[in-house]
Design a binder for these strands. Structure first.
Lengths: 342, 342
DNA sequence: TTGTACGCGTTATCAA
DNA sequence: TTGATAACGCGTACAA
């Protein structure tokens, strides 16, 4: 209805000047207790609300932070955002969400757009690409702080928060070996994100350290969905010497494999053990429940936010390049508990 | 590095005035083709980016929309947001996310905050409360468009997008009856959100229309978690005449019940049928897969965004009060397929 | 302690 | 077709 009240309205009402009102509102010491109280009172009576836009324009600080993810309704990403928001909201920041739909072009546009909107920083989990590193490069040269989480790109001077994917891959594989599995296959997701490579490396390393041979035919490249997982499992089981376990870089892919194995009446975990990656919520509800490597998404979000805040605090200092690597936590459930299941 | 270039920088470079630059940039017809091209060229050369903040202050339109939910990492809410963002981003809007943590005080502060940030509208799924209707009321009187989705409050002149919870409850119950279930229990979530009441009403209505008696002892109030679901099921099964089916308003609660029933070696669906509500992703992966009422969250988000856009389009017209009710879709899976399961 | 004046980056109005 | 100027709402350096 009525127009929004500004400090000018309050000033007029009180026969003083807008500057005085501003001072009163901002707890500026250079003002009498009397007028301050008067202003405060009138402000609340007139239902005054500060216009953050004007403040932002004036100060050059919008108090908005952009968060860019492929899709916000993926459990992992929404949880990271949960963490970011939890950490940033109390500090007065608002979180602006954008989804790239796993599209590199769109990602670039989104970043430009956020920059136009004068966000104070951008937290991003980048989309797949094919050697298009350069595309993002010019935009990263800006003064606006960038922080990668989970899916990072290797640029100098850009901070990142990731988990230890190598360790995750290693632990999962080692765990399967400890269960007595001898022929461990791996579901690999084939794109340019180095995190999948790291998990694969962890897998290899665990095999070798434990005297098991690395067999290329046991590594299947697939997309992260059930369908692909079923096909991958089928391919594996038709090998002359089929594996007796799978460590999968994707929970969804693993799910497909499980369905396929069950259709063959293969018992999990007695005949075949599996471990996934991501600890997607559904893994704990399945029967059997699925072991998976947890990525602590909420923690990751909080940490990314903290790194951003640090960056802001050290204002004009040299650009910080902080690489935080969170631990990967293997969650052992029934799907790989051959030894002592209850 | 270098400061951001403004239209003044371009103007100076070209020895013209900022107004002219602005006109060129905005395809204003009142400018010569020559200078326009010159400006456009120089702008891109100097890497000019429009400052949306200044534009927002000037125009009174921020092109930001606030979205308020209890927690963004709940599957349902993150999917609604997915829909909202998908619809709004192409129209040039940015989505600002806030979480109430199911806290009414916080919700109010968040709304004030978003209003201060000059958002063009607020899409909200409200938190539980206890008759605190009034608390939100003053803030809803603002000119800024509000739109409720899923969890609505009954205020005049406020649009809403919900699903037909009554129909959902009715269909789920009717389906159980069709499966031959005679003693159907209901998990009810007890708070002031009318949607749970509507589901209960649908349940009652289906019973009565089909000649089944409504028994209060078959309706259990609980919170939406596994623990509560287990206890609720235990209580039901210790009744002199235990039920043979459950229609639950919450998937998580139902999950607990299923775990309990399975611990009693009760076979689902042969001995006992269950249907949940929300179609949480995990329901389709379980064994047996769980029937549930789908709420089309992404669609709901898109629709809420559309209603907002309509509201914006009809600018100074009378406040629109649009109540969109989307259909509830019962998804039948194994957990309630007693008759013709494959 | 308070008022005056300016600038943040843009667009719109009016005049030239 | 272009220029000059005001205005959006706020905070602050400077002057009083």
């Amino acid at each position: 209805m009525s127009k929004k009240t500004t400090i000018y309205d309050i000033a007029k009402e009180l026969q003083i000047t807008a500057a005085t009102v501003s001072r009163a509102l901002n707890n500026n010491p250079r003002i009498s207790k009397n007028t301050r109280e008067l202003v405060l009172e009138t402000a609340s009576r007139m239902n005054y609300k500060q216009n953050r836009l004007a403040l932002a324009l004036k100060s050059g600080k919008s108090n908005n932070v952009g968060v860019v993810v492929p899709y916000i309704n993926r459990s992992f990403f929404s949880s990271v955002i949960r963490g970011i928001e939890d950490e940033l909201y109390p500090k007065g920041y608002h979180v602006i969400i954008s989804q790239t739909h796993e599209d590199k072009e769109r990602e670039l546009k989104i970043i430009q757009n956020l920059l136009n909107a004068q966000v104070d920083g951008i937290l991003i989990s980048t989309s797949y690409s094919n050697d298009e590193k350069d595309k993002l490069e010019p935009v990263l040269k800006k003064t606006t702080p960038f922080i990668f989480f989970d899916r990072k790109l290797n640029f100098p001077d850009i901070s990142s928060v990731t988990i230890d994917d190598f360790q995750g891959g290693f632990d999962a594989t080692k765990h399967l070996i400890d269960q007595g599995c001898k022929r461990i296959a791996h579901f690999y997701v084939n794109n340019d994100l180095e995190l999948y490579q790291n998990r694969l490396d962890g897998y290899k390393s665990a095999l070798l350290e434990n005297g098991l041979e690395f067999k290329p035919e046991y590594v299947i490249s697939l997309k992260s969905d059930m369908e692909a997982g079923m096909k991958a499992a089928e391919r594996l089981m038709k090998l002359p010497l089929p594996p007796d376990a799978i460590f999968s870089s994707t929970d969804k892919g693993l799910l497909g494999a499980i369905k396929y194995l069950q259709s063959l009446s293969i018992n999990i975990p007695d005949d075949f053990c599996v471990v996934g990656f991501s600890n997607d919520p559904f893994t704990q509800f399945m029967e059997p429940s699925i072991s998976s490597v947890d990525q602590s998404p909420v923690e990751m979000g909080r940490m990314a936010a903290k790194v951003f805040l640090e960056q802001m605090a050290s204002e004009h200092a040299v650009k910080i390049n902080k690489e935080v690597i969170l631990p990967a936590n293997l969650i052992i459930r029934k799907s790989s508990s051959k030894i002592q299941k209850k």
